[in-house]
Structure formats: C-alpha cells, structure tokens
Computed example of a mutant assay.
Amino acid sequence: MSEQETFIAHLIELRDRLLHMVVGFLLTFICLFPFANKLYSLLAQPLLSRLPAGGKLIATAVTTPFFVPMKVAMLAAVVLSLPYTLYQAWSFIAPGLYAHERRFVLPLVVTSTLLFLTGMAFAYFLVFPVIFGFIVGTAPAGVAVMTDIGNYLDFVITLFLAFGLAFEVPVVVVVLVRMGIVSVQVLQEVRSYVIVGAFVIGAIFTPPDVVSQIMLAVPLWLLYEAGILAARLMGRNRQAV
C-alpha cells in the first residue's frame, strides 16, 4: 500500500471514529432529553437547599426555561458518553504507538478522566453547599436571593471546570517529568511557589469567602504532592526495569 493510500485509509478511519463519537453523544442526549428539567433541578439542588423557605430560581428570558435545561442535558450526555468517546479515540491512536507508549498512555487517559470527574463531584457535594450557604447567608436584610437559571448554570460550569482541571494536576506533573521537561527535584524546590499560586487560583475562581478558597487551594497543593510522589515512583520502577 502506497503512502497516499495509507494516508487516505487513516483519514477514513478518523472519520468513522469521529462519527461513532457523535452518534454515541447524540444517542445519550436523546435518552436524557426527556429528563432535562429533572437534571437541572438536581444541578440546582445545592443552591435551592440553602435558600429561605419559598425561595426559588427565576428565568429572565423567554427561551431560558427551555434552552437551559437542554444545555444541562447536553453536558450530562458529554460526561456519560465520555468512556465511549475515549474508547474510540484510543482505538484510533493505539495502533500507532509502541508497546511501552500504550502502557503509559492508556492508564494516563483513564486516570485523567477519573480525576476530572472526581473534581466535579468534589465541587458538587462539598464546595457548592459551602459557597451557596455563604452567598445566601451574606445577603442584606430584605433582599430575596433569586438567581437566574442561566446565570446559575454558567457559574456552576465555571466551578466544575476549575475543580475538574485542578484535579488533573497529578497527571500534568507526571507527564512533565516523564517527558524530561522538569525533574522531581525541581518540582520539590518550587513547592512554595506552587502553594502560593494555588491560593491565588482559589481566590480567582471561588467567591470571596476563605473556606471555599481553601477548598480549592488545599486540594491543588495535595494533588501536586501526589503527582510528585507518582513521578518519583514511576522513575524508580523504570530504573528497576
């Protein structure tokens, strides 16, 4: 087979893999769409549970009551179809990797996915109650907290991304060490700067209460330490081999 035929075959396979990803997402979205309103109610529960009796969210635009729950269903479909999407991506790139690369990349992909989902769960179950309790508790007397459902969705998506990406720190550390960009010794030496940076990031991506800032900064620091530990262990295993 000529190089041109090989290239075309790869393009055809890539098209098929992408098509499978899209179909997997669409089928998941179709199944979730009838439950879009319930999914949004579940997403809004951390705030609704902190509102005073009779408190509720509001919709300030005509189309918001339809499109916002639909967006939530789409996001849920992305998360639920992620294993299938990653499987398709792995099936495409795996044949072009060496055996030792496959042994490194596959656990890396699985671990990074699980860590991102863990970060989202950490935000939903632990951070959201603290943040919304602080926001509602600091509202001036006579002010009813009634957030627009679209603004609420944008806010929680930002926090999901912040905590999901924060939980990727061990993966980033391991990759940097494995690629030889930095050494474990250097990572240990810059630890103090990382801790300061973690608290700066916590101040940027969370409301201005100390507890929620700490709830982002401390996991960032601990995950950084976990990444250093994992990189050191992997280095010892490679030397042993």
Rank of each mutant, 00 (worst) to 15 (best):
T118A: 15
V145A: 14
T63Y: 07
I58V: 13
R102C: 03
A36Q: 07
A166M: 12
R238M: 08
L216V: 04
V196Y: 07
Y152S: 08
A94G: 07
C31G: 15
I30Y: 13
E225K: 09
M234T: 13
V200S: 07
A198Q: 01
I195C: 04
A73N: 10
T60F: 08
I157W: 10
F116M: 02
A203N: 08
I93K: 04
E5Y: 03
T64M: 10
L176H: 14
V186Q: 02
A217F: 01
V72Q: 14
G54S: 12
N37V: 01
A89V: 15
K38Q: 14
I8R: 12
T118C: 14
M215D: 01
V241T: 06
L57A: 05
V184D: 11
R15W: 15
L108M: 09
A203G: 07
V194L: 13
V194A: 04
A240K: 00
S212F: 05
V186C: 02
I12S: 06
G142Q: 08
G24H: 11
T64W: 06
T147I: 14
F116W: 10
G55L: 10
L115K: 08
A217H: 06
A94F: 00
V78F: 13
Q185A: 15
Q88H: 06
V200C: 04
G197M: 15
L126E: 02
V200Y: 12
K38S: 13
L14W: 00
E13K: 10
I204D: 10
L159C: 13
Q239V: 00
L114G: 15
P107D: 08
L106M: 12
L26Y: 05
L114A: 14
V105P: 09
F92N: 02
E3V: 11
V130E: 03
T147S: 11
V109T: 11
